[in-house]
Design a protein around this nucleic acid. Structure first.
Length: 270
DNA sequence: CGCTGACCCTGACGGC
DNA sequence: TGCCGTCAGGGTCAGC
């Protein structure tokens, strides 16, 4: 479910309620996520204050004095803030109960998400080698151009590689490539500086717009207050095969690239 | 090193 | 109504 805008939306929905709060207790009902939630984690964090929250790539970090909780929502994960929590529902795997009685409840049907612990959150092996944040100035057309030399993979696969740039998932990769007029299957090394410059700009644009709209809800993404994201109606090609291209009217194509469904206009994108 | 395909898991949906 | 195959916004890992 969540790409960068959805994770950012989740973070914004929870951070004010969590920052400065004490963790009363952590309840793990199902530890078998993408990786097993380590035993003893609940004991380790109980009583600690959440000093700060941060998003890095599609991870949400909660910094405590002695280390950081690292969450990933995987494909189907979501977080809800509950003032008066009732009985947990199906797939409500983890509760974070705060000192003021508020609860953060983590739900993840497919269990592709994770909850990890690290002394230095950003130093965790999974986060250490990630590429730059797409909305950072360090990420631009020249960077993409340099990184893509000798990369023969499809440009869509390339920009979805979290070691190249983080946060660009399957939806926004298709959207940004459409706006930049670049065919998703084109080899990454066969794209000019000028076109990478357009692509970097469009990635920033589409992600920023999606964040403003609270992300994209295809089926099961909801922010921490339960509201869906409203960016779906602004998607120009994703999940629109057969519909007219917004630019030229020819039907939008769908093709599997790097094991992921990809949507594009074969006429407008070269 | 770069790249491909298998795999992790549940649920929704369409065809029969 | 049910069964079966397919697909889904994530990512890692083994093997070539």
């Amino acid at each position: 479910m969540p790409e960068l805008p959805e994770v950012e939306t989740t973070l914004r929905g929870i951070q004010d309620a969590l920052r400065g709060q004490t963790i009363e207790r952590l309840v793990v009902r199902e530890a078998r996520l993408r990786w097993l939630i380590e035993e003893g984690l609940a004991q380790r964090v109980a009583g600690s204050e959440i000093i700060a929250l941060q998003r890095r790539a599609k991870y949400i970090l909660m910094h405590l004095a002695q280390g950081s909780l690292i969450w990933h929502l995987g494909m189907s994960g979501s977080m809800r803030l509950l003032d008066s929590p009732g009985e947990p529902c199906k797939h409500d795997h983890v509760d974070l109960v705060l000192g003021n009685g508020t609860m953060l409840r983590y739900n993840d049907p497919r269990r592709f998400g994770c909850l990890l612990w690290a002394r230095e959150g950003l130093g965790h092996p999974l986060l250490r080698d990630l590429g730059p944040e797409p909305l950072d100035d360090r990420f631009n057309g020249e960077f993409l151009y340099q990184e893509s030399r000798a990369r023969r993979v499809a440009v869509k696969t390339f920009i979805m590689d979290q070691k190249v740039v983080v946060g660009v998932g399957n939806i926004y990769a298709s959207e940004a490539l459409f706006k930049a007029g670049i065919h998703p299957a084109r080899s990454a090394q066969r794209i000019s500086r000028a076109r990478y410059s357009r692509l970097a700009e469009q990635i920033k644009q589409v992600l920023s717009n999606a964040i403003e709209q609270g992300g994209t809800t295809l089926r099961d993404f909801f922010a921490a207050d339960g509201r869906p994201g409203y960016f779906r109606q602004q998607l120009e090609v994703y999940d629109r095969q057969g519909e007219p291209c917004p630019q030229c009217g020819r039907p939008v194509s769908r093709k599997i690239i790097g094991q992921r469904a990809s949507f594009y206009c074969g006429f407008c994108q070269r």
